[in-house]
Amino acid sequence: MENTAPQLFKVTIDGVEVEVPPGTTILQAARKIGPEVAPPAMCYYEPLKGSGGKCRACLVRVSAGSAKDPRPMPKLVASCITPIQDGMVVENFTNPQVVDARKSVVEFLLINHPLDCPVCDQAGECHLQDFSYEHGVGTTRYEEDRRTFEKEDIGPYIQLHMTRCILCYRCVYTADQITDKRVHGVMNRGDHAEISTYIGQAIDNDFSGNVIDVCPVGALTDKTYRFKNRVWFSKPVDAHCECEKCSGKVQLWYRGDEVIRVTARKNEWGEVNDFICNTCRFERKQTSQWTIEGPTKVSRASVISANKYSKNLVTKPDFALKLAESQYKKIDDDRPYLHEMSDIQQSEDYKALMAKDEKYFGHK
């Protein structure tokens, strides 16, 4: 019987081997392994066709092109647009040249980017913040005037801060691929390039709000959420509703009992799973309009998870013990686990500790 199993290519990234189908890019293969080897990405967005290849944040070194031709590639390559070959060997975080190149990319992205994180609504969920923190340096060599732009009103829902834009083109691809009429794009060339609307038109499509979610920085923000709250003071909750225009699957962001904003759900790479309509995003801000599914799973590395302790951890100590036991490996120790204070006081460890306390501090 003929074997119809799909052909798979083997690729090794930072010493970890993975099998992927032909046509897979290096970045996609790395993401299949996990975040520990996945390069950062500022312009690539998997749901959007044609994205990638612009910011060079995902540069990697190919030390072996393939099993048939193991010669290394002469230069660093953008992993988001470079397809893998069978037997390819890729160096990412393990290569000093790649790490140094990323620092240079961060420096270029920050040349004209205003350091206004304290007043930017994107702070706390900004990809450029994360990228510069993980791969950048603490100082800048740039001493020239920064590029600035005149403020432009592009509609009632979306605030444009062109000075923060890194020209990733995500918003352009989003408008092209999920709306029926795109009225904005990249105008001019080179250092004068900017995101703008044609002949001053407003962005008012039913799905225009999705450009806010795909923007990796604070260039496009929600006017209805502007200066209302810090993201780490908000509590994200997964919810859904019956909607004729979109899937209705969203994240509700609470401040107390108030829904202060609605966004699309994102995966672990910060990419939208299902794009949502403007009705869900801007007009449904009441809990009664949604079916609550539960708290959003947030990465422990994110500031959004700060101070979000479960009530059970305080009111039910047994819950905390069970949680710790489920998340951490048991210590390889044959000593008995002591629950009662009287048993603890009779243990040799406790007596030794008290003896040290008496010796150094002079009290029992």
Results as ranks from 00 to 15, higher is better:
Y254D: 02
R255H: 10
R255L: 12
D257R: 04
D257Q: 04
E258N: 02
V259Y: 02
R261M: 01
R261A: 02
V262F: 07
T263F: 01
R265P: 05
N267S: 11
N267L: 13
W269Y: 09
E271D: 10
E271K: 05
V272G: 01
V272L: 05
N273P: 03
D274M: 09
D274A: 13
F275L: 12
I276H: 00
N278W: 14
R281C: 10
F282S: 03
F282W: 04
E283I: 08
R284H: 01
R284F: 00
R284W: 00
Q286A: 04
Q286R: 06
S288L: 06
Q289C: 04
Q289H: 07
Q289F: 01
W290E: 03
W290A: 04
W290V: 00
W290F: 10
W290N: 01
I292N: 06
E293V: 14
E293D: 13
G294T: 05
G294Y: 04
P295L: 10
T296P: 00
S302C: 11
S302G: 04
S302A: 07
V303I: 00
V303R: 11
I304V: 15
I304M: 13
I304Y: 10
A306M: 15
A306I: 15
N307H: 12
N307E: 12
K308M: 05
K308A: 08
K311P: 09
L313Q: 15
V314L: 14
T315A: 13
P317A: 09
P317R: 11
A320W: 11
A320I: 11
L323Y: 00
L323R: 01
A324L: 15
A324E: 03
E325R: 15
S326W: 05
Q327C: 14
Y328F: 15
K329D: 14
K329C: 08
K329N: 14
K329M: 13
I331D: 13
D332A: 14
D332S: 11
D333R: 02
D333V: 09
D334T: 03
D334Q: 06
D334M: 04
R335S: 14
R335W: 10
R335N: 12
P336S: 00
Y337Q: 07
L338T: 03
E340M: 03
E340K: 15
M341C: 00
S342N: 11
I344N: 06
I344E: 01
Q345I: 13
Q345W: 14
Q346G: 07
S347F: 08
S347T: 05
E348W: 05
D349P: 09
D349T: 07
Y350R: 06
K351F: 06
A352I: 07
L353G: 09
